[in-house]
Design a protein around this nucleic acid. Structure first.
Length: 430
RNA sequence: GGAGAGGUGGCCGAGUCAGGUUGAAGGCGCUUCCCUGCUAAGGAAGUAACUGCCGUAAGGUGGUUCGUGGGUUCAAAUCCCACCCUCUCCGCCA
């Protein structure tokens, strides 16, 4: 959520930011106009209230002194003030609610460094690593859904029987591979990030805090009976860890990570990338998240990217880093770097991590503040996060990239400690 | 699912049964100062958030906030109604 005071005091920079996002300005202009009206009404209401408060105090004193007649006169006068005040107050409350509804649906402003652009075609490729399109052999050009069925490590048919399309079932060493990836990701970031295992079902407020509600309600699974939401990412519960809290500056930056299941309805993507693991309704992910001061945010953004990228590199995958343009930026983000891995069998670049800086957009919704060590008052923190590892697409890229001519899958060195002594998934002939 | 208790400031915790200088006692924590060779102990003062208006600013001034929303009243932490949440016991259960 944007700061209403910024809208008020620096409307041009808000217009510029929204325009860079290709966002229409209608709701912004409306919020500005409502803000003007509500402040006028508020001033008038507050004056009336001040009058009522003063009169009430006098009434109290008169009663104590036994001067009931004089008190009755003041009471009548106060009642008249009160009636007018009530009308203004409901007006104020109504407009404030309207402003909030608008602000909750307005996106964050892009960072100054964020490249301009209309859609994903304008994203800037910062670098491409470990990628040579001519270096892949025929044995690597097999999609993971074929290999997965051949080796019995991925059973899409059975998953569909259980849960429907776009759910998957890992079996045997396929399940083991996913677990090894999760543990690798957790352990290599445990040096600095506190491991949490939060709930995967959360309240509405928790979803609103990150920006997943109200605007993207169709993307989320909702358990109507209990009014709980299945989290689309651990970012959701982790961002609410400090909701409505005031942190000491000394505890910042606060680094958190969590492995959870993630649930996405993928409402707008029916029919796209539906093969195998490219797009699924439920998957496992290890998420890194940090609360920081505004000054610490830049370094933290770099750190989370470096950690996510380091693991992908160590897994021996080809990947590229994208600087998302203003038109492709997520609603809550001010700047996002995507890591995409290359899957040679599917011949596609797969997004495996979005490393995002949300400035104070989410923290204002979640009301997470900190007390500066010097100075007074409170400031809103910044939040940042990124996937350390999302299982399905990394699993797919490993199975395709590391497929050997004999049909076996070589397991990357970094996950060996979690593979029970195995260094490869045997091919179809054993 | 059944029964009960409870939600007050950064934290703990009075106040609610008799509505009125209660933004709210007391304590803890924190800040500054004094004392002190250092530490501990002790003494003094200060210490909520949000928000409107005025001010370049420091600050001043008004309003709101005792779970949430509504009601009664000149006046509500205190009375009434609804809802939400938390905890305890019982039941069930990995």
């Amino acid at each position: 959520m944007l700061d209403l005071r910024v809208l008020r005091t620096d409307p041009d920079s808000v217009r510029t930011g929204l325009t860079r996002r290709r966002e229409p300005l209608g709701s912004f202009e409306k919020a500005l106009e409502l803000d003007r009206r509500v402040r006028a009404a508020q001033s008038e209401r507050d004056e009336l209230r001040a009058g009522v408060n003063a009169l009430s105090k006098q009434v109290g004193e008169l009663h104590r002194e036994g001067r009931g007649d004089e008190a009755a006169e003041l009471q009548a006068e106060s009642r008249r003030h009160g009636e007018h005040e009530k009308v203004l107050d409901s007006e104020v409350a109504r407009i404030q609610q309207e402003i909030r509804e608008i602000l909750l649906r307005m996106p964050n402003l892009p960072a100054a460094e964020c490249p301009d652009g209309a859609d994903e075609r304008d994203n800037v490729v910062l670098r491409v690593e470990n990628f040579d399109p001519d270096a892949y052999g025929e044995h690597q050009r097999v999609p993971h859904w074929d290999t997965g069925a051949e080796l019995g490590i991925l059973d899409v048919e059975r998953a569909t029987k259980m849960s429907g399309a776009m759910f998957v079932l890992y079996r045997g060493l396929g399940a083991r591979l996913g677990r090894a990836l999760v543990q690798t990701a957790l352990d290599r970031n445990g040096d600095a990030f506190e491991e949490l295992r939060p709930p995967t079902l959360v309240r509405t407020d928790t979803m609103v805090s990150t920006g997943h509600l109200p605007k993207f309600v169709d993307d989320a699974y909702h358990l109507e009976r209990d009014d709980l939401w299945a989290i689309p990412t651990a970012e959701v519960p982790l961002t609410s860890l400090a909701r409505d809290e005031i942190l000491d500056e000394a505890v910042l930056p606060m680094r958190l990570m969590a492995h959870t299941s993630c649930f996405r309805r993928e409402a707008g993507s029916a029919g796209r990338d539906t093969r195998g693991l490219l797009r699924v309704h439920e998957f496992d992910k290890v998420e890194l998240l940090a609360y920081t001061t505004p000054e610490q945010a830049g370094a933290m953004h770099d750190e989370i990217l470096a950690r996510a990228e380091g693991l992908i590199a160590d897994l021996g995958l080809a990947y590229r880093i994208l600087d998302l343009c203003t038109g492709d930026l997520g609603n809550s983000s001010a700047r996002t770097w995507d890591i995409e891995v290359y899957a040679p069998g599917a011949d596609q670049w797969l997004e495996v991590s979005s490393v995002s800086w949300f400035t104070d957009y989410q923290a204002r919704r979640a009301n997470v503040r900190y007390r500066p060590a010097a100075g007074k008052g409170t400031n809103v923190v910044h939040t940042l996060n990124g996937s350390a590892l999302a299982v399905p697409r990394v699993w797919a890229a490993i199975v395709e990239t590391h497929r050997q001519p004999d049909g076996s899958i070589r397991l990357p060195d970094v996950i060996h400690p979690y593979c029970g002594g195995l260094t490869r998934i045997p091919g179809p002939d054993g």
